[in-house]
Design a protein around this nucleic acid. Sequence first.
DNA 1: AGTGTGACTTGCCCAGAACGGA
DNA 2: TCCGTTCTGGGCAAGTCACACT
Length: 592
Amino acid sequence: MTKCMLLVVGSPLMTSSVSVHLDNGVCFSSLFRWEEERYTDGSKWRFLEHKGPVFAPPYEPLPDNVKFYYDGKPMKLSAPAEEVSTFFSKMLDHEYTTKDIFRKNFFKDWRKEMTSEEKSKITDLNKCNFKEMSEYFKAQSEARKQMSKEEKQKIKEENERLLQEYGFCIMDNHKERIGNFRIEPPGLFRGRGDHPKMGMLKRRIRPEDIIINCSKDSKQPKPPPGTKWKEVRHDNKVTWLASWTENIQGSIKYIMLNPSSRIKGEKDWQKYETARRLKKCVDRIRTQYRDDWKSKEMRIRQRAVALYFIDKLALRAGNEKEEGETADTVGCCSLRVEHIKLYPKMDDQEYVVEFDFLGKDSIRYYNKIPVEKRVFKNLQLFLENKQPEDDLFDRLNTSILNKHLQELMDGLTAKVFRTYNASITLQQQLKELTSDDSVPAKILSYNRANRAVAILCNHQRAPPKTFEKSMQNLQTKIDEKQNQLSAARKQLKAAKADHKASRDEKNKKTVEVKRKAVQRIEEQLMKLQVQATDREENKQIALGTSKLNYLDPRISVAWCKKFSIPIEKIYNKTQREKFAWAIDMAEKDYEF
DNA sequence: AGTGTGACTTGCCCAGAACGGA
DNA sequence: TCCGTTCTGGGCAAGTCACACT
């Protein structure tokens, strides 16, 4: 295995690291270089040791006084059937237990867990009464909230113990935090949007389902007493510690490291370096795709128009999906005729395209944009003789597109455009918006720049349930502060008058005190107003996703350094851990 | 070219912790 | 100290993309 030292960056020492003491008494030095260990042969590590996952707690049967009723009569269920019924009863207040597909899928899977006797008796979900069970669980969660401090403390300590024991691993020379060391408990699958599999039973994962990955020379994790792992392998070409196959989609789930880990941090850094390389050649690529709009070949025109959308609108690539397996959502390459409308003229604009489709997580993308005439004419051409449910780009898919992109630049794929456009937008917006005002005003500018990116990437959120109320509260505070301010101003005026009348030391002092008070209240008022603006503008926009996944953290770090903003105002503790590499290397003059 | 699989990133939501004002 | 509000991390679903195989 070859180890290589690559890329020497500004300040490579990881200042935020700490000495790590392990069970075995070994202490690893805190000094390591971010670029210290990268392997050139595709291997990800040479030593990996961990304790394996934590399993979901076993099912606890209901007390005898909590009953399930079928057709009005109480009925004691077998443990497996009862367990599944509790999943449903815990969701009774949710809208989706009223949805046909959810109920149908649930009932079908529930019946699979029943004894043959139960199966012959329970034939209609509408005759099932889960009310008592539901009440019982509500009471339980209420009781949990009412627990004494000591009880709560005890639970906290137990969680902490579990974290210490299972939450860390050793990868090469570092003790690293594991991202998700708990196995997902059984329950009913929900899915997002109109999912055809909603309500299906997510089965319990046993040790026999788990593949463990660790190094040969490590202490292997022990399965719980009386059980066995499915397999123990030693594959250092991958980064995961454990995996299992989930039963709803048949996909594999993994236990991996926390974003603060070396392996994730390095990958993140690489991602932004690829985006920066795109910055250097994006002009050339844009010229090329504009040229391709005129190609004789339909497939090349389609590729060029799709790439234009990906670049201009930050659309996702849009892989094909198996029909009926997931919610019907699309990205760029999988757009259908029904998802766009063409308007040769709209208001005072020409060649307007209206997009309306469901993207990732069934979030609606709605946008009207004027495009260049050539793009418009091409779109008209692509639409000819097609039905609404036909593919807009029938000669294109993500594989073709990415192969093309790879030829234009090493490592270039569709999603790099999202990263590039997000980061460059942040940098531009920060330049444009940052005022030479107070710190809160600067932070508002930062949030606005962040918001511009979130809007570009269509990162939405449901307005918080308490939004209206909290907005009102804030307004009340502002009004109060305003009253305070005018009162303080009056006092200042009076003091000044007194001072004018008799110019003694005491009066002079009073003026100063009152002046300070006015100033302080003005600042407080300003802060509140900024807060209100920020919150209002943020009602339906989610900033987190772009901050965590699309914005080169070095831009933010540099901005903080340049304007003497404490980094804590921009990144919380977790974020600072994730972006430790960037905090370490970016100086105030960093350019994306 | 098409299909399936595996590994990894991205994305929204929500419970519970932390905070801060009365 | 209590209570309402805000923040944060975890949970887990849903994407992207490479690669093997045919």
